[in-house]
């Protein structure tokens, strides 16, 4: 996918929030231009927004705690919302959530709007809420997010740490919508990232048409669980718009 083929393109500065409606068959390519970026992501079924990305269902269905090529992001209703159809990065975090204002101040120091106007240090929790609020959603909908471009290693005792593998300038990931999906993004730093310098560098978000999912698709055929998940997504669209759905 070359960038000049994007139907929509946005550059999101570090720390900011953004949303887009990604209809079924379209895909979002995220690129971490600096290598120091993090993209927190929440996803909702745009046709029924009580259906949303579910970290636990995503992990247990695919026996993984990392996300990479071939994985899907499951909703709480047994359907894939987004499929990872391409990934140069390798291991995206699912288990650390996001930052809040106190965490950002503790890690990077006080830098609020009073001090530097729009240069202030933004946090993930507030960014997610400001974006959710635009779509009629709120605190109840702020569930554990995925963190793209951040790798979190787990040792045999269960201890977690942000990995140096997270630093990959130009890393990209492609997420294809399997339902009509409301994607909510925060480019605030990963909660395990250390200070003192608040990250700089944009995230590029480009939308392209991915097309019909072939029977041989790498996400669909990754495991029996995903085969059934894709069947559940197809059932959602089994009848023309306006027809019954379950």
């Amino acid at each position: 996918m070359t960038s000049n083929a994007f139907l929509l393109e946005e550059r999101i500065p570090a720390g900011c929030h953004h949303a887009l409606l990604l209809k079924r068959g379209y895909a979002l390519r995220l690129t971490d231009l600096s290598g120091d970026g993090n993209v927190g992501l929440l996803a909702f079924n745009a046709d029924e927004r009580s259906e949303r990305y579910n970290m636990a269902d995503t992990l247990k269905a695919q026996h993984t705690h990392k996300l990479t090529l071939g994985n899907v992001l499951y909703s709480d209703m047994g359907r894939p919302l987004l499929s990872i159809m391409g990934d140069s990065f390798g291991w995206h975090d699912t288990i650390c959530g996001t930052t809040n204002a106190a965490m950002i101040e503790a890690t990077y120091g006080l830098n609020d709007f009073q001090l530097t106007r729009n240069g202030y240090y933004r946090n993930g929790r507030d960014g997610f809420l400001m974006e959710l609020g635009r779509w009629g959603l709120g605190r109840r909908d702020l569930v554990p997010n995925a963190n793209f471009f951040s790798t979190v290693a787990v040792d045999n005792e269960g201890n977690i740490a942000l990995s140096e593998a997270s630093y990959q300038p130009g890393a990209w990931v492609e997420l294809r919508a399997e339902l009509n999906v409301l994607v909510i993004l925060s480019t605030a730093p990963h909660p395990l990232r250390e200070g003192p310098a608040y990250p700089e560098g944009d995230i590029e978000a480009g939308v392209f048409w991915a097309g019909e999912v072939p029977a041989s698709d790498i996400c669909r055929t990754a495991c029996g669980e995903n085969q059934r998940g894709f069947e559940n997504a197809e059932a959602w669209f089994a009848l023309p718009d306006g027809g019954p759905r379950a």
Binding site: N54, M55, A56, D57, L59, K60, A61, H65, Y74, D76, M77, G78, R79, I95, G158, E225, N226, R228, G229, E231, N232
Partner: peptide, 21 residues
């Protein structure tokens, strides 16, 4: 000695994915 908090709760819909329709 040790308890889980990442596996979530079972549900009708996730059961169809994990096991069978």
């Amino acid at each position: 000695g040790r308890h889980d908090t990442l596996g979530g709760a079972c549900a009708s819909e996730s059961n169809t994915v994990r096991y069978a329709h």
